[in-house]
Computed example of a mutant assay.
Amino acid sequence: MLRQSDNLWDWLSPEWFSYGTLSSFDWVYPIVLYALPAIPLLFLLKNLVRANSRNKLDMAMFEGDVKWHWTSLLRFLPDMVFMLFMALVLLALARPQQVNEQIEQTAEGIDIVLMLDVSGSMELADITPNRLEAAKEVALNFIDGRVQDRIGLVVFAGDAYSLAPLTTDYQLLRENINSIAFKMIPNDGTAIGSALAIAINRMRESNAKSKVAILISDGENTAGSLDPLMAARLAFAHHIKLYTIGIGKDGQVPYQPDTNGKLIYVESTLDETSMREIARIGEGQFFRADTKDALQAIFTNIDRLEKTEVTEKRFRDTRDYYQVYLKWALVLLLGWMLLKNTFITNVLED
C-alpha cells in the first residue's frame, strides 16, 4: 500500500494500480466504479453502429491473397488508450481515500471490591459444580465487562484476607480469582464483618466518584470480632455502596458422595435478614441466587447499575489520492491526441 509523499514523481509508480493499493482505499463515491464495465461496451456499440456507415476508399489491389501482419493491430491502440483514460477519470471521480482513525477513550472509573466466601459450605453442589466455582466463573465474567475500574478482591472464611488490592490489572485479578480454593483459609467459619472491614479499609481514602463493595456468601456471620451491621454503618460513613448476594438454596442440599458412593445431604441456611439489612444500610441491594444463571443475572444487573461512563474521541486523518489517477489520465489523453496524428489512425473515420 502506497502513501503519497512529498516526492513530485511518486505518482508514476505502477504500484498505484496494484490490487493491494486499490483495495486499501475508502471510496467516497463507490457507485461510480460500477460504470467501469460500461466503457468497453460503449466502444463495442460504437463500432457496431458505424460498421455499415463506415467510409470506404476504392483502391486497385494486386492479385493474390493479402497476408495478415501484426502491425494491423495498431489501429486499435488509440481506442485502447482512450478507454484507459476514461477508466482513470472514473477512478478519480470515485475519490479514493485512506483514512487513519484513532480512538481515544477516557473514563472516570469506580472502585469495586469483591468479597468472596470460601468457607466449607461453599463446597455444596446445589449450584453446579459447586457454589464457589460458580461464583468464581461469574466474577471473571464481571471483570471482563469493566473499563478503567479499579477492582480489589477479599476472601473470607473464619478470617478475612485481602487477596488483591484495588487495581486495573485485570489479568492479575483473573489469576487471583482462579487461584481461590477451599481450605486456603485454615480457620473455617463466616467472618462477614471482617471482610467488610477490609473492603472499607481498601476504599476509605479513595477519591473515586463511586465506591462499591459486593459481598457473596452462603451463610450467617459466625466468626470475626466485628459485627456486620456495624461494618455496614462504617461503609455508609465512607460513602461505600454495599451489594449483598446470598448464594445457594435453603434446606437439604447435596454435599458430596460418601465412601460408598452415596450422596450426602446437609442442612443449609442463609441469614437473609442480616444480608438484607447490610445492603439497606449501605444503600445498595440484596439479591438471592440459587442457580448459576440467577447469579450471572445478578452481576449483570449490578454491572448495569454501576456502569462507568466512557467518553470516546475520534481523530480522523483523511488523505485523498484522486490526483494520482487524474495525472495518469492526463498523460493518456495526451498520448491519445498524439496517436490521432500518426499513421496509426484511420483518417476516413475521423
Rank of each mutant, 00 (worst) to 15 (best):
A51R: 13
A51F: 15
A51L: 14
A51S: 13
N52C: 05
N52P: 10
N52L: 06
N52V: 14
N52R: 15
S53L: 03
R54C: 05
N55L: 06
N55E: 12
N55T: 13
L57R: 06
L57E: 14
D58T: 14
D58H: 10
A60F: 13
A60I: 14
M61W: 07
M61N: 07
M61C: 02
F62D: 13
F62H: 15
E63C: 04
G64W: 00
G64S: 00
G64V: 03
D65V: 13
D65K: 11
D65A: 09
D65W: 15
V66W: 12
K67I: 12
W68A: 01
H69K: 13
H69F: 06
H69R: 05
H69W: 05
W70A: 04
W70S: 11
T71Y: 04
T71N: 02
T71A: 02
T71P: 04
S72V: 03
S72I: 01
L73K: 05
L73M: 05
R75V: 07
R75H: 11
L77G: 06
L77Q: 00
L77F: 01
P78W: 06
P78D: 00
P78R: 01
D79I: 12
M80I: 12
M80F: 11
V81G: 07
V81N: 11
V81A: 00
V81K: 07
V81I: 14
V81E: 10
F82S: 02
M83K: 05
M83Q: 14
L84H: 02
L84A: 09
F85Y: 14
F85H: 02
F85N: 00
M86Q: 09
M86R: 12
A87Y: 12
A87F: 07
A87E: 03
L88Y: 05
L88T: 09
L88M: 14
L90F: 06
L93A: 13
A94D: 02
A94N: 01
A94E: 00
P96F: 07
P96T: 09
Q97T: 03
Q98W: 04
Q98L: 00
V99S: 05
V99T: 02
N100C: 02
N100P: 00
E101M: 11
E101R: 10
E101W: 06
Q102G: 05
I103A: 12
